[in-house]
Amino acid sequence: MHDHDFEHDVEGFVTVLASELPGHWTVEYHQHANRAEQLARAAAVWDLYLVADAVTRHPLRHDAILTRDDGTRLYVTGRPRYEDDFLVAAIAPASVPPEAFRGVREPDGIAVPADPFAAAEAVTTGLFPRYEAALAQVWKNSDHLDSRTPVTLTWVGPDLHAHADSTTVAAILTEHGFAPTDSGQSLMLTGDDTALQARAVRAVGARLATLGIHLALRHPAVRPGLDTTTVALAQHPRPTARVR
């Protein structure tokens, strides 16, 4: 049997499915103009088994993405070569560092019957528990990564210097007035306009906070007393004679 000996009613199926799943869902149904669109729509599907195989090996024609108010997303399409089945998979959360997914097992999708009421039960009891467990681990990993990599702004005279460990952080700093130093090893925000500088720091802090990244301000370490004493003595001429 060929993939297109029948046509799954994806749009009708997901409309009823969304009304039976817990929570409030919106539905985005889409017909693919080409294979590139198909692959792009499923790029974030959190699956390495049944659904990933269908997406990469079969022309699917159309799919739907369901989004719940809390941000949970599901990918739904017809199951190739199975007229009475549909495929449902979770979509991985966006704006999470790739490192946060390391070691987390994918909550692979499931095949569900064409009956949307039975399908909603299968998703609720079969897919959601695995998805929620994987998501909790990803957020935990993400928090751990963020806690280890704060962005520190260091005062050097009136200017602020920062080292950006990622292109995302560098882009945020640049958008708010930081520019590469002559050495190219850091970014600097001049203190020519202290009010502008203060607004920029607040804006950078707010932007980084949305990514879960902490912003720290610090002054450079004070020189040791020995160095200070040496410099002070060097400023005075040596005596030519002792006073008895």
Rank of each mutant, 00 (worst) to 15 (best):
V104I: 11
L127M: 08
T72K: 02
G71F: 11
P59F: 05
R102H: 15
L66W: 01
F128A: 05
G109Q: 02
S183Q: 08
A42M: 07
P22D: 03
R57W: 06
L145A: 04
D84G: 03
S142F: 14
T56Q: 15
A92V: 02
G71V: 08
G184I: 10
A111D: 12
F6Y: 10
R68V: 02
T167C: 05
L233P: 02
R68T: 01
V222I: 11
S142L: 12
D159H: 15
E106F: 04
T125Q: 13
D47N: 09
H62Y: 10
I213F: 05
R238S: 14
D47C: 04
A209L: 12
T77C: 15
A221I: 09
P116E: 03
V88E: 00
G12L: 03
R68C: 06
R41N: 03
V16Q: 07
R244K: 13
A221F: 05
I110W: 00
P237I: 06
R202Y: 05
A162S: 13
A234H: 14
W139H: 15
V14K: 01
L153Y: 03
A164V: 07
H58P: 08
L21V: 13
G71N: 07
F6W: 12
P150E: 07
V55C: 07
I172F: 11
Y75F: 13
V16A: 02
L66S: 02
H62E: 15
L173F: 04
L145Y: 11
Q38M: 08
D69C: 00
T190E: 06
K140M: 13
A52Q: 14
T26G: 06
G109C: 04
I65M: 00
R35D: 06
D227Q: 09
A179Q: 15
A33G: 13
Q185S: 14
V76R: 00
R223C: 08
A200K: 07
T77W: 00
E132L: 11
E11R: 02
A122K: 03
T67V: 12
P158E: 09
P93S: 11
P93R: 11
R102Y: 13
Q137V: 05
L127G: 02
R61P: 09
G177H: 15
T67F: 01
L21I: 10
Y29T: 04
E132S: 04
R148N: 08
V104W: 07
F13E: 00
G126L: 10
H236T: 12
A120W: 00
A36R: 09
D108Q: 03
S142C: 14
D53V: 14
A119Y: 00
P239F: 06
H32V: 09
D192L: 08
A118R: 06
A33R: 07
A90C: 14
T181Q: 10
S166W: 06
S186V: 05
I65F: 00
E121R: 08
P116F: 08
